[in-house]
């Protein structure tokens, strides 16, 4: 009995059901590092730590959020095959007139990008709240005079004409042609100014002038000629944010543009609940405080992609490795800060679901929700035991999911769902 209890303790998380629910008050993390002064605070877009005025925009429903998340996932998967296919996917999915006028790019949906940071732009500095996204590259913000149109945002819309450090990039500049590899679009020209266009998987888009400007991450971290998109025509599911901070691997991403200062190293902690805070830290201070850091190499399958690809080798649930043939994982895995769920090949997901349900067999299942098919009703429980889920990556790296990294609460504790799903196609 002692052995069984020890095993149970070792392979399960014990969680207070009430802790799964979002709080209405913000509790900042006590582990925010600010180790070297190059850290930004990360908060959940819809949580109490966010300064965004949510009344300004229509908050999407849970079902809409998951639909957008799936669109983003599908778009990443089509993009992965080839840029041409990504374009075809967009044309197939889109019905809007605007989408036919803007070339496709390799971004993703934005309604599901939930984590935001605040940076400074221009001289004098204006504060802008941006979604941070490791799944795309170009940083952009809405700009006056919003020649097309701008959606409502919480911060004042950036006006380059009031900044002494803003410069347009000309069409003849080699910088303009970098847009082909970043957003993947052929830039266009307007009165000799380079024009970028990015269209995302859910038909959200930003179109505007490609410029350079002073970017202030922290008081000590200022970048004079940061290349970004000054959006004149922006529509979509961006919430009340001012735009996007691109952290992909392309030349135009923040990571590459600040490589001389930070050496292409950054880290983040996403807040475990929507009522707490995390951090986004740049430079060599990242992760060094911990002796428990485990590194896995980038996947060679993604060497020509701006996505961060890893090699997933196996999955364990409650201490038992799932019987999944290695070939199932041969299509690779991307780590993305902007997708909510984890999407697995169908065989892998079915094995995970079966093992998880078996480990949770003493709990009452709840109604399925959207693409989430494994939900529980914890209404009559104070505490629950969740089987630990471990992903094994190349290099002997076993990563155990946190207790807050397993479930999504849909409406209340009566519908708490496993936050994993299966791809539609084994080849996705």
């Amino acid at each position: 009995r002692e052995t069984i209890e020890k095993n149970l303790l070792h392979h399960t998380h014990t969680v207070q059901v009430s802790s799964l629910l979002p709080s209405t008050t913000c509790t900042p993390s006590t582990k925010d590092p600010h180790r070297n002064g190059s850290s930004l605070k990360v908060v959940h877009k819809h949580g109490p730590c966010s300064q965004l005025n949510q009344d300004k925009t229509k908050t999407p429903t849970d079902a809409e959020i998951l639909e957008q998340d799936q669109l983003r996932a599908e778009f990443i998967q089509y993009s992965r095959r080839s840029k041409r296919l990504g374009g075809e996917f967009l044309r197939r999915k889109s019905g809007s007139k605007a989408s036919t006028n803007i070339p496709a790019n390799l971004g993703g949906s934005f309604g599901t990008n939930n984590y935001i940071v605040t940076v400074g732009l221009g001289t004098p500095k204006r504060s802008l709240t941006l979604v941070f996204d490791t799944g795309s590259d170009l940083t952009w913000t809405q700009c006056q005079p919003c020649a097309g149109s701008c959606y409502d945002q919480n911060d004042a819309i950036f006006d380059p004409s009031y900044s002494s450090t803003y410069t347009n990039i000309t069409c003849s500049s080699p910088l303009c042609s970098q847009l082909i590899s970043g957003p993947g679009n052929q830039p266009t020209c307007s009165s000799s100014t380079c024009v970028y266009g990015v269209l995302y998987g859910d038909n959200s888009f930003s179109l505007g002038f490609f410029g350079k400007e002073k970017l202030t991450l922290t008081a000590k971290d200022v970048f004079k000629d940061f290349l970004f998109g000054c959006g004149q025509y922006n529509k979509g599911l961006f919430g009340a944010t001012a735009g996007l901070l691109g952290l992909g691997r392309d030349k135009l991403s923040l990571v590459e543009q600040t490589a001389n200062r930070y050496g292409r190293i950054f880290s983040y902690c996403l807040p475990p609940t929507s009522s707490s805070t995390g951090h986004l830290t740049f430079g060599k201070g990242s992760g060094k405080a911990s002796n428990t850091i485990k590194f896995t190499p980038f996947s060679k399958s993604y060497s020509k992609s701006s996505f961060y690809g890893l090699d997933l080798l196996g999955i364990s649930v409650a201490g038992d490795k799932l019987a999944i043939p290695p070939s199932v994982f041969s299509t690779g895995l991307i780590i993305d800060s902007g997708t909510i769920l984890t999407y697995l090949p169908p065989t892998a997901y079915n094995a995970l679901r079966t093992a998880f349900r078996q480990a949770m067999k003493n709990y009452t299942m709840g109604e399925a929700f959207s693409i989430l098919d494994t939900c529980y009703d914890f209404s009559n429980r104070n505490t629950i035991s969740i089987p630990k889920i471990v992903f094994s990556f190349r290099g002997g790296v076993d990563v155990e999911m946190d207790k807050f990294g397993v479930f999504l609460v849909v409406r209340s504790v009566s519908q708490v769902c496993l936050a994993f799903t299966g791809n539609k196609n084994a080849n996705d």
């Binding site: 984590y115 428990t292 997933l312 991307i334 993305d336």
Partner: peptide
Amino acid sequence: TAIFGNTQQRGLEVVYDVGGSRIGFVPGGC
């Protein structure tokens, strides 16, 4: 292509060493 989403990244410190072509995880690092 599988995708490792942001729900599963909660509570993990994720370290991107792009120059070193590797990603690090610190379980419980947040």
